[in-house]
Simulated scan of single mutants.
Amino acid sequence: MMKRWITVTTLTALLLSSCSAAGDERSKTTDAVTGTKSRKQQLIYAQGTKVMERIAVPNGYERVPVEDGSYGSYLRNLPLKPHGSKVHLFNGELKANEVYEAVLDVDVGERDLQQCADAVMRLRAEYLYGSGKYDKIHFNFTNGFKADFATWRKGNRIEVSGNKVSWTKRGAASDSYEVFRSYLNMVFAYAGTLSLSKEMKQVPLSEMQAGDVFLEGGTPGHAIVVLDMAQNPKTGEKLFILAQGYTPAQDIHILQNEANGEGNPWYSTAFEGKLKSPEWTFTREQLYRFTD
């Protein structure tokens, strides 16, 4: 959503134990992914502590293979808060609009900083930091200034005066997690959807992979990340899960697919027209990817 400076489940399990004909009919539903009549499959598992453990793939689909240590592997193994957890804002209040199936176990901080684009940057930066790829952690401010962690970790800090941004030496070199988080807070304050749209590259929907971002850069704008993917090996159809941050700053959460109803967060790349997520609508052309 628009930045301040940039003017930037519970699943109800269907117990299919009835032996009556009427019970069988009530337990059948139109599968929102395949369009066929079938018993509703349980896709949310309360005991799962990670994305891929909590959310199963629909019948006939398999998770898209990812390399160990890749960003895609990192995302599908992200830790989740206990099943049924609510999304909280940075100030402890609850998110009013319950449009989510699960909540990532990633802190939101104590300031109104980690909003939508920031959540995208947070996940990417955390992956790179945890992999020791410090030199690849960099994001642009809205005015184009390149804020890179490689310079920050040397003890340099960023000074902002109006639209003028510069580096200044402030202290000793350190790549501690505390220093890393202070770097991210600076990035969150001066980067957003508009800067991300200029920094990332557009990719065709047919080439989607985990880590890609549906992104509308602007004032306001929005960004949601493709957290995981699955594919039907017979038909080739691909499905994906979406996660977002929002305004005000709040816990990153896995979005429901309202077209499927509660308990099935998978979206299909074969959507017609625009992609309708619970709190934003994107076009097919608004899919982006980090370049390194």
Rank of each mutant, 00 (worst) to 15 (best):
residue 87 V to E: 08
residue 159 E to G: 08
residue 77 N to C: 09
residue 291 T to Y: 06
residue 66 V to E: 15
residue 208 M to P: 02
residue 69 G to W: 05
residue 73 S to K: 08
residue 218 G to H: 10
residue 131 S to Y: 10
residue 251 D to A: 00
residue 226 V to T: 04
residue 161 S to N: 05
residue 143 N to D: 12
residue 114 Q to D: 15
residue 72 G to N: 04
residue 211 G to Y: 15
residue 123 L to K: 10
residue 265 P to F: 00
residue 148 D to F: 07
residue 278 P to V: 09
residue 287 L to Y: 04
residue 163 N to M: 05
residue 155 G to M: 04
residue 12 T to G: 00
residue 50 K to W: 07
residue 256 Q to N: 06
residue 164 K to T: 04
residue 58 P to W: 07
residue 224 I to V: 15
residue 93 E to P: 01
residue 89 L to Y: 15
residue 47 Q to V: 01
residue 281 T to E: 14
residue 75 L to H: 03
residue 16 L to K: 01
residue 65 P to S: 11
residue 217 G to R: 02
residue 281 T to P: 08
residue 50 K to E: 12
residue 87 V to G: 02
residue 290 F to K: 04
residue 195 S to G: 03
residue 274 K to C: 01
residue 159 E to R: 08
residue 68 D to S: 15
residue 75 L to S: 03
residue 53 E to V: 14
residue 161 S to G: 00
residue 264 N to W: 00
residue 90 F to M: 12
residue 99 V to E: 11
residue 1 M to H: 14
residue 268 S to F: 09
residue 168 T to K: 15
residue 223 A to M: 06
residue 96 A to E: 14
residue 29 T to W: 13
residue 286 Q to M: 10
residue 242 L to F: 10
residue 152 W to G: 06
residue 71 Y to E: 05
residue 212 D to H: 04
residue 42 Q to F: 00
residue 138 H to I: 05
residue 57 V to I: 14
residue 132 G to N: 02
residue 158 I to V: 12
residue 56 A to R: 13
residue 273 G to V: 01
residue 113 L to G: 13
residue 36 T to N: 09
residue 229 M to Q: 08
residue 8 V to R: 11
residue 107 D to F: 15
residue 100 Y to P: 05
residue 19 C to A: 04
residue 256 Q to K: 10
residue 30 T to F: 14
residue 266 W to G: 02
residue 228 D to Y: 01
residue 59 N to T: 09
residue 135 D to E: 12
residue 175 D to E: 15
residue 105 D to S: 14
residue 210 A to Q: 11
residue 257 N to W: 09
residue 17 S to H: 01
residue 269 T to K: 07
residue 87 V to N: 04
residue 206 S to L: 00
residue 2 M to L: 14
residue 265 P to L: 01
residue 77 N to I: 11
residue 93 E to F: 07
residue 141 F to P: 01
